[in-house]
């Protein structure tokens, strides 16, 4: 494997509140090579969201404290960067695609307003500037990249005027504005219908293939992992319990935890016995 775009080594994170503390990440290490699709999968409380927040620099201290470890992006340790330098990377080098398309958009501004403003501030952080017209052109360009059939109409719309699937596309477009190299997607498509989810997952896969992005997918849905990732990290109780290429992980999981997790997923082919009469693996 080539030099990783993102590389986490020995990350330990602790949360403290009301005089008690709890370590929530134990020695987490993971790699996201350039142009790869990596998944971080786990159930609620596994630490996948904390890991994601640590990468994006969104953990608040207090209550969170990074005890030790490194988060290297293109060789630079993000944890050692001054806050101002760190912030420059968000949205420009690495972008987040948020989970909930219903609540991540401001209802009183049009899509063009919201994407335009984000672009303006991203440009400012990077010491660039563009005219309003150039910004609008870029907004329409990213809306076209997420396969909106009528970018002009979408740009002029308010969030309520769009379906859930279209709003999710807008959130992906938002992440693409400043041409990042790494997309971090937090449970993409979980709030959507299954046919719409299939469209969104295909879009993410196509973006990775066509635009040379790397994708880090944070999810609890093993089906989504298998459909979209080539490498998988499984987390449980703050520990990476197993990591392997996706094909290997699903056909021959090594750890009991991974096995039980995969066994708990109902199969489209049926044959899963529910009730105390039919015990599972």
């Amino acid at each position: 494997m080539s030099e990783s775009l993102l590389s986490i080594r020995g990350l330990n994170v602790q949360f403290s509140a009301y005089g008690r503390s709890q370590q929530v990440l134990h020695d987490v290490s993971l790699d996201v090579p350039a142009h790869s699709q990596v998944a971080l999968v786990g159930e609620s409380g596994s630490g996948k969201t904390v890991t994601m927040k640590a990468i994006m620099g969104l953990l608040r201290d207090p209550p969170a404290r990074i005890l030790s470890g490194e988060i290297r992006y293109e060789g630079r340790d993000l944890l050692k960067l001054p806050p101002r330098e760190r912030k420059k990377l968000n949205g420009t080098e690495m972008s987040m695609v948020f989970q909930d398309p219903m609540s991540s958009l401001n209802p009183v501004f049009t899509i063009a307003d919201q994407l335009g403003t984000i672009l303006k501030y991203a440009d400012r952080r990077l010491g660039r500037s563009r005219s309003g017209r150039e910004r609008m052109a870029r907004v329409l360009e990213v809306l076209a990249q997420v396969r909106m059939r009528d970018p002009e109409r979408v740009a002029a719309s308010y969030p309520v005027m769009l379906s859930g699937g279209m709003r999710q596309r807008v959130l992906i477009a938002m992440a693409l504005l400043s041409e990042p190299k790494l997309l971090i997607a937090d449970e993409p498509g979980t709030a959507l219908d299954v046919t719409t989810q299939a469209q969104i997952l295909k879009l993410l896969k196509d973006l990775v293939a066509d635009r040379g992005l790397a994708l880090l997918m944070i999810t609890h849905n093993l089906g989504v992992v298998r459909e979209t990732s080539d490498y998988v990290y499984v987390m449980n109780k703050g520990v990476v319990v197993e990591h392997a290429p996706a094909a290997e992980l699903f056909s021959a999981p090594r750890e009991d935890y991974t096995r039980s997790l995969i066994a708990a997923v109902p199969r489209l082919t049926g044959g899963m016995r529910f009730g105390s009469a039919g015990a599972r693996v």
Binding site: L222, F250, R267
Partner: peptide, 13 residues
């Protein structure tokens, strides 16, 4: 279309 859209975890599915 509905069944085709379901993300699955095994090769058999």
């Amino acid at each position: 279309l509905l069944i085709a859209s379901v993300p699955v975890v095994t090769a058999e599915e």
